[in-house]
Each structure stands twice: as C-alpha cells, then as structure tokens.
C-alpha cells in the first residue's frame, strides 16, 4: 500500500490563531457586560459598529493585497482589534469615530505594515491614539456611570443609536449625562495642589478607582485570569505591569498619602487592567521571551505612570503600549534565552 509522505510531527496541531483570538473575545465578555451595566447599551453599539468597519476594511485590504480572504478573515484578529478599540472610546461617540479608528487600525497600522504578524504597533492602540488626538472633544464625553445619574437619564437603545448616528437628541444635553472621569479629576486636582483626600470627595470615586470603573476592571481581570489559566496568554506581562505599578507608587503613597493616591487607585482607574491583560499581551507587537515580557510589562507600567503624573493626558496606557511596541524587538534581541550547551 502506498502513502503520501509528510514531515514530522504527525499530530494534529493543538492550537490555531482563530482559537486564540476567539478565546480572547470570550474572555472580554464579562468586562463588556459590566461596561454595559454601568454605561448603557451604547457600548454594544460601538462594538458592533467597530466590528462591522473592521471586517469590511480587512476584507477590502485582503482583496487589494491579493491575499486569501477566508483564512485571514476567520482568524478574528480584526474583530479583537475592533472590540478593544470600541471599549476605549466613549459609548456615545459618533459613528465616524469608529470608522476613522478602524481605518487607522486595519488599513494603516495593520495592512500597510504587511498584515497579520507584521505590524509593529498595536492596531487598536494606534486607532485610539489617532482619534484621541484628532477628536479630543468627542473622546472626553464619557457618560456618568450608573448610580451617579438618574437611571431614566441613561440613554436606551434607540436613543443611543440616534446619538451615535446623528448626534444628541434635543431633549438631552451632554452636560447632563457626561462627567469627567476619575483620572481627569485627579489630574486637574493635583495640578491645583488639592489633597488626594479632597479630590476623592468627588462622587465619581469609588472604593479605590472610579465608581463603576473599578467593577469593570475587576471583570476584565476575571477574563484575563481565565486566559492565563487557559494558557492563551502567559502571566508575565499582566503580573509585571500590575506589580510594577504597585511597586512604583507604593513608596510615594507611604511617604505622603495626602498628595499621592493609593496604588490600588492607579490600577483600578482608566484602562490599566484592560491593558495589562488584553492590550499589552498582544503577541505580535510584544516580546516573545519570558524575560522580555517582564521587561515589556515594566516599561508599560513606568511609561503609563509617567504620562499619568506628568504628561498631557489623564491616562497613558495607549501611549505607553505604543512606545514599548517600538522597543519590543530590541528587548527580544537582548533577552534571548541561552541555547542548550552554549556558554552564557
């Protein structure tokens, strides 16, 4: 009997890129649900919009580049990018914010660099930074979380859709439904030499981070821990980021708690937890070796804190991740594991 010869190994592969991406999407669900609870159904509309644009653009780019459509569309990497981006923008941002963001992410950051696996910068973060710089007003209109405004004021499905597509309906005003984020308040307060305890009097603050935000962060962390347990991501980057943030901010807080916020506040506000588990762990733009991952996480933490404390933006995770993306190849170069039997 004749057979066709194939090279070793003769085992079906354990994993696929689409499996990896699907599990990432699954792990995002608890956090997304928490966000919907606190910020309304607009979050879901933004996710749907971004996914729509991302998939259309991905399809167009694959077509233009003459690449096979099926395997690349079914790897879900564009969907992950779209969801991560949608989670970073305000839930009632106009629809074209997602379009611009996805053009920046899929067309520029991904395909112009050579498509999946070739991009230097995290596409979702490129998209977020582009819209953040280009449309600062729209990007600061974060809704007040549930519990801080009347439930009737939380826009429903139709109202959210209307707002996203054609602007805020006449019976609502941005001032009534939006609120400065905890990080904004903190930044402004510190600049005005207020005590941390004074700043934290504001109702947006919860136990540690922002009200609502800290719960969302917890749910994202839950999903992230599931990913680590499933071995989709390794623990190195999340642990490195969170541990470094604590280690860096702890001495300052111990030294002077009145002008330095408690480390937990740094972790539970803004996008830090989302970043630690889902954004900085993007394999393509990160480091491959274990030591490299730890250095990468440390770098993200330092840069985030630097931007938060001295930079022009209240949250710095996007910039921190993009800056560390640039260093990833260099870090990988210098954290090469020692090959068996070779001198160090």
């Amino acid at each position: 009997m004749e057979f066709s010869r194939s090279g070793a190994p003769h085992l079906p592969p354990e994993n696929t890129v689409s499996k990896v991406m699907l599990q990432v999407i699954l792990a995002l669900i608890p956090g997304i649900l928490a966000m919907v609870w606190f910020f309304g159904v607009g979050v879901l509309i933004q996710i749907a919009l971004s996914i729509l644009f991302a998939v259309l653009l991905e399809w167009a780019m694959l077509k233009l580049r003459g690449k096979p459509i099926r395997p690349f569309l079914s790897d879900y990497s564009a969907v992950v990018t779209a969801i991560l981006f949608a989670l970073c923008i305000p839930p009632l941002a106009p629809w074209w914010i997602s379009l611009v963001g996805m053009i920046a992410a899929i067309v520029v950051a991904k395909h112009l660099y050579g498509g999946l696996g070739q991009n230097i910068f995290n596409p979702a973060m490129v998209a977020y930074v582009v819209v953040l710089i280009a449309f600062p007003l729209e990007l600061t209109r974060w809704l007040a979380p549930r519990g801080l405004i009347d439930v009737e004021l939380l826009p429903g499905l139709l109202q959210s859709l209307q707002t996203i597509i054609s602007g805020l309906p006449a019976n609502l005003s941005w001032d009534a439904i939006t609120q400065a984020t905890p990080l904004d308040l903190l930044k402004d307060g510190v600049e005005q030499n207020q005590m941390i305890s004074e700043i934290r009097q504001a109702p947006v603050f919860g136990n540690y981070g922002g009200r609502g935000w800290e719960w969302i962060a917890n749910f994202f962390a839950l999903g992230g821990i599931w990913l680590i347990w499933r071995r989709v991501i390794s623990w190195h980057i999340p642990v490195a980021i969170i541990a470094s943030v604590i280690m860096i901010t702890l001495p300052a807080w111990l030294y002077d708690p009145s002008s330095n916020p408690i480390p937990l506040q740094h972790i539970f506000s803004g996008a830090l937890v989302l970043c630690a588990f889902f954004i900085a762990t993007d394999p393509v733009t990160g480091c491959a070796s274990r030591r490299g991952k730890i250095i990468f996480g440390l770098g993200v933490a330092i840069l985030t804190l630097t931007i938060r404390l001295w930079g022009g933006y209240p949250d710095g995770v996007a910039f921190a991740v993009l800056l560390m993306n640039m260093f990833a190849p260099l870090i990988d170069r210098y954290t090469r594991p020692r090959a068996y039997g070779k001198p160090r």
Binding site: V17, S77, G117, P283, G286, A288, S289
Partner: peptide
C-alpha cells in the same frame, strides 16, 4: 500556514532554549 504572530509558545516549549 498563517503568518507568525510572535506568540512565543514555541520559545516556551523549546528544550534547547532557541527562538
């Protein structure tokens, strides 16, 4: 064959310490 996504799984399992 999809492009390499640099996930580092191969680095993690290599008994010879290669990339």
């Amino acid at each position: 064959e999809m492009p390499c996504i640099n996930c580092g799984d191969c680095v993690g399992v290599c008994p010879a310490g290669l990339l």
